[in-house]
Design a protein around this nucleic acid. Sequence first.
DNA 1: GATGAATGAGAGTTCATTCAT
DNA 2: TATGAATGAACTCTCATTCAT
Lengths: 212, 212, 212, 212
Amino acid sequence: MRVVDTSSRSTARGRIDKRQAILGAAMQVFAREGYAQAGVEVIAAEAGVAKPTVYNHFGDKQTLFREAVAADADRALERNLAVVEQLRADGDLRPVLEEVGFRLLECYCDERSWVLRRLLHAELGRFPDLIDIVRGRAADRVTEALADRLARLVLAGRLRSCDPGEAAEQFTALLTGPMEARARFGTREVPDAELREVAASAVDTFLRAFAP
Amino acid sequence: MRVVDTSSRSTARGRIDKRQAILGAAMQVFAREGYAQAGVEVIAAEAGVAKPTVYNHFGDKQTLFREAVAADADRALERNLAVVEQLRADGDLRPVLEEVGFRLLECYCDERSWVLRRLLHAELGRFPDLIDIVRGRAADRVTEALADRLARLVLAGRLRSCDPGEAAEQFTALLTGPMEARARFGTREVPDAELREVAASAVDTFLRAFAP
Amino acid sequence: MRVVDTSSRSTARGRIDKRQAILGAAMQVFAREGYAQAGVEVIAAEAGVAKPTVYNHFGDKQTLFREAVAADADRALERNLAVVEQLRADGDLRPVLEEVGFRLLECYCDERSWVLRRLLHAELGRFPDLIDIVRGRAADRVTEALADRLARLVLAGRLRSCDPGEAAEQFTALLTGPMEARARFGTREVPDAELREVAASAVDTFLRAFAP
Amino acid sequence: MRVVDTSSRSTARGRIDKRQAILGAAMQVFAREGYAQAGVEVIAAEAGVAKPTVYNHFGDKQTLFREAVAADADRALERNLAVVEQLRADGDLRPVLEEVGFRLLECYCDERSWVLRRLLHAELGRFPDLIDIVRGRAADRVTEALADRLARLVLAGRLRSCDPGEAAEQFTALLTGPMEARARFGTREVPDAELREVAASAVDTFLRAFAP
DNA sequence: GATGAATGAGAGTTCATTCAT
DNA sequence: TATGAATGAACTCTCATTCAT
């Protein structure tokens, strides 16, 4: 189902295309099989290149893994930040929080997000720097951005006075904590309605605790 | 100091001792290396037995993995349930909740708990049944037990009327959610003081939302 | 389908029964799997004993193999000799030869005979002495016995003067040679009618060449 | 003495050379040890390549075995057919038949022929398709070719009227049957003189039975 | 720059054989 | 004597990685 680029004979584009194809294939295979089990040969095949080409581009399997993970973490960060930015102080607070909560859960429950978290857990032992790669690009910065928005809500008198960092932590926890069980660690597709329920419940508790 | 023969030289206990030794070594090695990378030979060496002995006892690597995980999940369940049972309705509620919260965080942040969760995430792809093995023995049943206790607190008028299942989910989320970031996925040892802080903050938010 | 001896608790019979059971099971397993692939554990299970019992009786796998083969070779020799003894000089020669030829082919095409020959070929490299074990007990002595009978036929004027050893060799060759192809090396069950045809054709050629 | 580059250092021929080397080594080792006992590592060493190279070329041990056997069967077929083609109807029949018989016995008693037959018998259980691989390439087609020649001799009036297929079967049987015993299944080197004797005796019997 | 071919190291698994009971 | 348990050695097969083109 891949679309073959018909114009990549040794052009500069061709090289970039191949690099992207390899990264994409790598993430797919790593997700499916885990790092140790994933075969470079399989990745190469799925990317439509020869095995040594992978090595020409990335040097070794570990580097390929790191870069593939980093690329996906970037993507996830961007999506999450875009959601947090929707948290504005105009109008009724509850529906806004519920909408943001729902969107964040959508990100959290995205197939690729589960894959990323799974790989992170799986390979922390062999790749301790993965924490920084992923968290520097995703989880922490999202919480930070969320804290910023909450701080402004406090200043605007829409929330009671509190530590916005802690509040952001807890808001996130109230959203994602219940999902882990319900999504069975990403193996069950959670319907949007359930996402909205969880978001509503989280927001309810959050507002009971943090409304002025 | 009992003086029974604890040396395992060929007594009837020998078999059981070896089984336990293998399970223990297996968990250590799986934790260190991940399932795919862990070598049965290494496990055998670490257990002080020969490689075929491992196969005599467990048949193959997958079974060994499942049984090792199940054993650790059992242990974790027991510890968690013991903590939840301490949640009694006598006296002031806040300090009791804070103590239970702290103890639950101790369990959650235990080295072996992190290992278990990491392996669970890591190998879900290859072992989908791991969810049931672990959750049937741990996470879910703890939340259930917690919900039971919260229900009694509602009936006793110590908490406002609410769905105890949801309340338990959120209490757990408020505890563990913030830990994931702070413990850097288990790679950082979190001092008890910080655990108590997180517990206090979680209980504060929880009581603001669920006090009558 | 084995009949278990109900009275073998440590009696002298019990021991012999077990020995026979092991030999029988061994031959079956060796036939099915070949020497190298056959597992002593499987043989033991099929004989209804524990693995070390096999070693108590036979010392090692090679000895077990030799004894099992020797036992079957004995059985084959007896059957063949009984057939050759039917070769009497009274009455018409052709039908007698045809009957003997047919009976010899029956022996030759017996499942257990094919197994024996296959094992012999298979393991000649590892067991050079197998030639003597089997041939001393079977092929050669049958040809010798046949030569004896033919010699008496020559003396009785029923066959032309010739070397009876050569005649016996050739009579056997005319019988068995065509079978190898037709029986597809023992993997095809040859119907009796075809056996009789081959025997008749062999006798016809033999008599054309050796009638006085 | 041709002066082409027969050294195989990385030329395009290199691949083919290695393939041939592996096939040759495989046949030698399989012959020496039997299929089950033969180690791929040994084969690789004897071929002067690394173990995975064997797997790159043949995929697995079974395929390697089949291809090695097929290659040798091809070789044997060619030699046998060349001999049968020498069976012409000009001149005296007896010496021609004796020469052909002798040459066929040479083929039959060739070391590699014994090896092939031994392996065929030995591994029929595990490789039932070996019958077709070998017989389609060797035994059957030789008998067929021989039958063709005998048919022409019948038409030319040099042999009596008969079924040429049967006659070919019996001619072959008269040649090879006595060899099995004399060569002790290929473990004894039979001198040419004895081969000629057996051939002469076979031809004598054959002509007595089939001369017009 | 991209590839087909080759490899060293190591994986899981099996098995004949031997203790200790 | 018969056995459950343990083991050392060996097996097939895989894989990340590197030449030579």
